Simulated scan of single mutants.
Amino acid sequence: MSPAASMRLPGLVAPGVDGLGEADFARLRAAVNKLGGVLQDEDRTFARRNARRGRGEMAGENAMFRSHAGWLLPPATAPRKTATRRRLAFGRAIPFGALIGPALLLVIWSIGSVAGLIDPRTLPAPWSVVGTAVDLIAEGKLQDHLMTSAWRAAQSLVFGILIGTMLALISGLSRLGEAITCNR
């Protein structure tokens, strides 16, 4: 790309074209940029007003605006508003509301264990789980067991991805696979 093309203002003039030298073009570019900042609010208001009235080419945010010098300038870009999270519930958010569910689950688990509603062979009491975890950490066995479980989970993930990819390819690329997977 030539220096003239890289410095060209969109839809305007470039150095060496229209009888402008490099210095003239630099001054023109600085003036247009300064003017663009001054006209930014006027242009945005003008565009909104015309968009509301439904007027053709000057309506909308992507419209081009005519400056006082007579050149077409792109609209100044306004900073985008950041999206705020909307709540589905009415009223204010409950402080530490995310902890209510796990705390309630722990309370129900504890009450069920004390009342004998939960079989200890199926689900031991929370204090038994914590005590066993502390003992296993002290002996160094928990880390080994976690590493073994993580390795098995990783192997399962790899095998699942490979089998799923093969079945997807067979289903998508062959008539037999298409006949088997389509329920028509």
Rank of each mutant, 00 (worst) to 15 (best):
Lys81Trp: 06
Gly19Lys: 07
Leu9Asp: 09
Arg121Gln: 13
Arg86Val: 07
Phe96Ile: 05
Met58Lys: 15
Ser113Phe: 01
Ile94Gly: 01
Ile100Ser: 00
Leu35Ser: 15
Gly70Trp: 06
Asp119Ser: 09
Val13Gly: 03
Val32Trp: 08
Leu99Ile: 03
Gly91Cys: 07
Arg85Tyr: 04
Gly56Trp: 11
Gly112Lys: 00
Pro10Cys: 02
Ala115Pro: 01
Ala30Arg: 10
Thr77Val: 09
Val32Ala: 10
Leu20Tyr: 05
Ala115Ser: 14
Thr84Ile: 07
Arg52Trp: 10
Leu72Val: 04
Arg86Gly: 05
Arg85Asp: 06
Gly112Val: 01
Leu123Val: 12
Leu73Met: 12
Leu105Trp: 00
Thr82Pro: 09
Gly56Val: 07
Thr45Cys: 12
Leu35His: 13
Arg121Asn: 14
Leu123Arg: 03
Ile108Lys: 02
Thr77His: 07
Arg66Gln: 10
Leu28His: 09
Ile118Pro: 04
Arg29Tyr: 08
Leu39Lys: 06
Ala14Leu: 00
Gly116His: 04
Phe46Lys: 05
Ala78Gln: 15
Ala83Ser: 08
Gly54Val: 02
Arg53Pro: 00
Gly56Glu: 14
Ala78Cys: 07
Asp119Trp: 04
Pro75Cys: 03
Pro102Ser: 00
Ala51Thr: 13
Ile118Thr: 07
Ile111Asn: 01
Gly16Phe: 00
Gly60Val: 05
Arg27Trp: 11
Gly91Lys: 03
Ala76His: 12
Glu61Phe: 04
Ala69Met: 10
Val13Glu: 13
Gly36Gln: 15
Ile111Met: 14
Gly11Asn: 04
Gly19Ser: 13
Leu117Ser: 01
Arg44Val: 07
Ala93Val: 06
Ser67Val: 10
Glu42Ile: 10
Pro15Glu: 02
Trp109Thr: 06
Lys81Ser: 12
Ser113Lys: 00
Leu9Cys: 04
Gln40Val: 03
Leu28Gln: 08
Val107Glu: 01
Val32Pro: 04
Ala78Ser: 11
Ala93Asn: 08
Pro74Gly: 14
Arg52Tyr: 11
Phe90Ala: 15
Gly91Met: 05
Gly11Glu: 03
Arg66His: 02
Arg8Gly: 01
Thr45Pro: 06
Glu22Pro: 03
Val13Gln: 10
Ala4Val: 00
Thr45Ile: 12
Asn50Gln: 15
Leu104Lys: 01
Thr45Ala: 15
Arg55Asn: 08
Ala98Gly: 05
Glu57Lys: 13
Leu105Cys: 12
Ala26Met: 06
Gly97Trp: 01
Arg44Asp: 04
Gly60Asn: 07
Ala115Leu: 14
Arg121Ile: 01
Ala69Trp: 08
Ala26Pro: 02
Leu104Thr: 04
